[in-house]
Every structure is written in C-alpha cells, then in structure tokens.
Design a protein around this nucleic acid. Structure first.
Lengths: 250, 250
DNA sequence: ATAACCAAGTTGCCTGACAAGTAGAAAATT
DNA sequence: AATTTTCTACTTGTCAGGCAACTTGGTTAT
C-alpha cells in the first residue's frame, strides 16, 4: 500500500484503529486500555509491557500515540520505563502518585462518598487549626467571616466568601495536603450543587443559619479549643450535607 | 541548516533546548514549566496557551514533545484543548482531577504531614466501618486479625498482615475514596519506614502492643460501637506515629 | 573460564506531512 | 449598507520514518 493511499484512509471506518473506538482522543483511550490491563492484574508488577511497536500494531495506532499513552501511565506512576530496556509495570507499593477523579455528577453515590470524605478531612483540619493557628491566621479567618457577614447583609448568597472562610481555616493547619485536598473536594461539591440547582427550583439562602455556624467555629478557633472546634465543624458540615441532600434524593 | 546537520547536534551542549535542562525527560520538565506558568497565575484561566509551534520554538523542543507535555496537563485537568482552536487554561473550580505526589522521603516535614492526613482519614474510616460493616466485612477483618496473630506467634513482624488488616477495615466503609486514599497513604508511610530502617539500627517489633491495639479496634467494630472504634483507631495511630517519630528526628 | 566486544532490540526525540476542525476575513447576496 | 455565505489561514490530532542513546545477551578473543 502506498503512503498516500494509507494517508487518505486515515479515519476510514474499516481501519484497524476502530479497536479502541472513538472518544476523547486515541491516546486517552489507549491509556485507559493499558491501565485496565495493569489494575486488573493481567499485567503483573515488574512485568514488561509489549514494545511500543507491538502495542502500536495491536491497537492500530501510531507509535507517537502509544508513547503519549505510556507517558500518561508513567506520569501516574503505574509504569516505569528504561531506555533501551522497555516499559515495566511499577511495584504498586512504590507508586508515589495518588489520583482522584470526580467527573460524574449524575452519580449520586459518588457525590455522597465525596461529601463524606470532605467531612472527615475538614473536621480534622478545623481541629488542627484551633490548636495551631497563628495570630495572622486568626486575623485572616476573621476577615473572611466579616466578609461573609457583609455579603449576608447585602442579601447575597456569598458563596465566594463562604469558600474563602473555609479556605482560611484549612490554611491555618499548616498542612498543605489538608489544604489542597479540602479545597478540591469543596470546589467539587459546590460545583455539583451549582449544576444541580440549575435543574431544580431554587431554594432560599439559609445564609443566616450558616453564618451562625461559622461564628461558632470561629469562636472555638479563637479560644484554641480543639474539641469544640471539631464539634462545631461537624455540626456545620452535617447541616450542609442535610441541605444538600435535597439534591441527592429527588 | 540541513536536516542531517541538525540531527547530528541532537544533544549538543550549545543547543537551545538547554533551556529546560536535564532531568526525567524533556516532556516531563516542559510539563512542569507550563504547570508553573498556570499555577503561578501568569496564565489566567480561560486564557489561550501559545500554539504548539510557538512553545516548541520557545523551549527548543519538537512539537511531539510539546504535545506530550500538554497532554499531561490535559490529563491533570489543568488545560482543555479544542482541535483547531488551541489549548486553554481550565477554570480551576471545574478541575475534576486531584493529584497527590509523595516522592521525597528526605523531607521529614512532608512525611509528618502525610501521617497527619492518614490519621484523619483512617480514624474516620474506622468509625464508619463500625456502623456499616456487614457480616462479611466482619469475617474478613477477623480473618486478617487472626493472620496477624499467627504471624506474631511465628515471631514474624507481619507487615503484610498488618496492612491487610487495615485494608479490610477501610474496605468496610463502602466508600472507595476512603479505601483508595487510605491505602495509598498507608503504603507510602510504610515505604518510608522501610527505607529509613535500612539506614538505622533495627529496633524490635513491638508487635505484641500493636496486636492488642488491633484487638481493641476489632472489638469495637464487632459491637458496632462507632465512637469507641474511632478512639481505638486514634490511639493505635497515635502510638504508631510515636514509634515512627524515632525515624523523623534523629 | 573470563573478559571484552558486538549486534540486535528498545526507548527517546526529531522532522515532515496530512486530516480535521476553528475562526476571522473576504466575497457574494440581499 | 448590512447580512449572509464562502474561503483561507491557522491550530490541534495523527501518522510515517529515521537517528541517537541505551540495554541485553550472545559471540569472540584473550
């Protein structure tokens, strides 16, 4: 087959690449396939992956595409490559990357699980914040509390201020993992609410109650009272989850 | 410049690609560079990245390499690409991927932070496990407890059994996020201990005490007593952290 | 028997090219 | 003149082929 001819049938339906089907991108889908091979255990740790050439032929994609897919797996720590030797499935106990993907908002179960994790992380973070907060931290938290107060008085929902308030607390833990994870989960949940709200009747603020709960958390942090701070955070989160439950079981 | 000539000076010291320096791989380092541009805010959300061509010229690497780097960012949700239009910085509040990387074992601070997160997650997980565990779950947990017991009696450290015991508990929460995160953190910490131990005098098992703590956790889960389960888990984790502290402050 | 060497195989990276999609400018129509 | 249509340049997605750097196992020379 001439080069030109092959080039023309790039996307033809009968081409061998239909094996991977359509989707986000060839590399994406190929990466998913290979990942499946690994997590399912069909490819054991330490085992050598097929060569790029072989994979290329098996799945009907070019070598650069294969490289891109393997690059992803390498990025995620699932495989390690050695120039000249090959690509090998990484030892699971040595994987240094954890990846959390939250994309499917229609999956209520997943949202519930995310909220549960958020509650665990943020309650403990608040507890640590109470014992460790510096004067700066305290000032920052109070500033966000006041900003929220102002928003409430202006009659605004103050979602941005709410987020900032929580952010300033987890920041005070001094533990970037708490900060980043909490931040991520928080954003995801809020994003879910926003999309859910678009399809539902809008139900009013409750901002007064929220603000009171915030105040309770702040007071405990102010007094460096860790158990009370934790309890206040748990109450707040439980209530927030209850308000949210309206979207989860229609 | 002829093709052959350019090809020959692939790795020459004076080539423009020295901009990114050496390291894991060109794509890796380029991806890090671009990520820096984004998280630092020099590239604002929604803003268009330079074209692959431009990036290629700026950093002195080929387009496939640029594609690989951008592919990573896409994979991590930091950018979105539209064929024909370009690559754009993603809206941070819409990022659906969380990434946790724990590579630097020499960074004691990082290890401490990881342990702190592990304690938060696993304590809450144990609490949930107590209220939700099925009969199957209970049997599985007991089986792991017994296996650990047997290992102790054989005079073995039983690290594998220990890990399996914890795994069976977090499994019982029914929340895959708890399971996966806890599993990851646990493995990381144990891995740190193993590498640290190689450079230090080996200090004995303490396996008896560990086993007693495990038993306490199990008893609470058996009785579906969530608060006690949490407390027992916290005690166990605190003690484990204390044993570990020997490696953190030499 | 051991050591040095060599050749095949594999990943890492590059160039060049075409297909597919986008967006704005130019042209045609009303 | 305003609006719609068309076209063209640009950008990403993919492929093909090729050379450099490195690994590995067998072969040869000592």
């Amino acid at each position: 087959m001439s080069r030109a001819a092959k080039s023309t049938e790039h996307r033809s339906a009968s081409a061998p690449r239909d094996i991977i089907g359509r989707g986000p991108s060839l590399a994406d889908t190929l990466a998913l396939r290979l990942k499946e091979e690994i997590v399912s255990g069909r490819l054991q740790p330490g085992e050598k992956l097929p060569t790029e050439q072989q994979i290329s032929e098996t799945y009907g994609v070019s070598r650069p595409t294969v490289r891109e897919a393997i690059g992803r797996l390498k990025h995620d720590g699932l495989v390690v490559t050695r120039q000249g030797a090959g690509a090998f499935v990484a030892d699971p106990s040595a994987v240094a990357v954890f990846r959390l993907e939250v994309t499917d908002f229609s999956n209520k179960e997943e949202i519930r699980n995310i909220i549960e994790l958020l509650m665990a992380v943020e309650a403990t973070a608040t507890e640590h914040a109470a014992t460790r907060r510096s004067e700066e931290d305290l000032k920052s938290i109070q500033a966000q509390l006041d900003a929220m107060e102002a928003a409430v008085e202006r009659g605004e929902p103050g979602v941005e201020e709410d987020l900032a308030f929580h952010r300033s607390i987890v920041e005070a833990t001094g533990n970037p993992f708490f900060r980043d994870l909490s931040d991520f989960l928080d954003r995801r949940v809020r994003n879910f609410i926003r999309t859910a709200r678009a399809n539902t009747a809008r139900l009013g603020g409750m901002t007064q109650a929220v603000q009171a709960e915030h105040q309770a958390i702040f007071n405990a942090i102010l007094r460096k009272d860790a158990p009370t701070a934790r309890a206040a955070a748990e109450t707040h989160l439980r209530n927030a989850a209850a308000r949210l439950a309206l979207y989860l079981e229609p």
